[in-house]
């Protein structure tokens, strides 16, 4: 075997957490984005009573925000 090196695990404070931590943060950003803006959309729905459209827009907006967050927080290789 070509010397099974353990991948360099600096684990320093500047470094992003290990795989498990990142996985949970990525998922929480996606679901969080959807939940927060979906809820705001739902409030707008009840206020303007536009019947479900604003919630949908909110969910898509939140999902886009979640993806941008994941890309910015976890996706920029340092």
């Amino acid at each position: 075997m070509a010397g099974d090196q353990k991948p360099p695990n600096t684990g320093g404070p500047g470094d992003s957490p290990s795989g498990a931590g990142q996985g949970w943060t990525a998922l929480s950003y996606l679901i969080g984005g959807m939940a927060v803006w979906g809820f705001i959309g739902w409030l707008v729905d009840r206020w303007l009573d536009t019947g479900g459209i604003a919630t949908g827009v909110g969910v898509v907006l939140g999902m886009a925000g979640g993806i941008v967050l994941v890309v910015r927080r976890l996706g920029t290789p340092t």
């Binding site: 090196q5 360099p8 990142q22 996606l30 999902m63 994941v70 890309v71 976890l74 290789p77």
Partner: peptide, 27 residues
């Protein structure tokens, strides 16, 4: 093995963009 740290960020970009579809499905 030593490339795992470098490719991990791209894993998360791919995961986010793809998983978004399933989560939109639930929502």
């Amino acid at each position: 093995p030593e490339s795992s740290r470098m490719t991990l960020p791209y894993v998360w970009i791919g995961f986010a963009v793809i998983e978004a579809l399933a989560l939109l499905g639930i929502a």
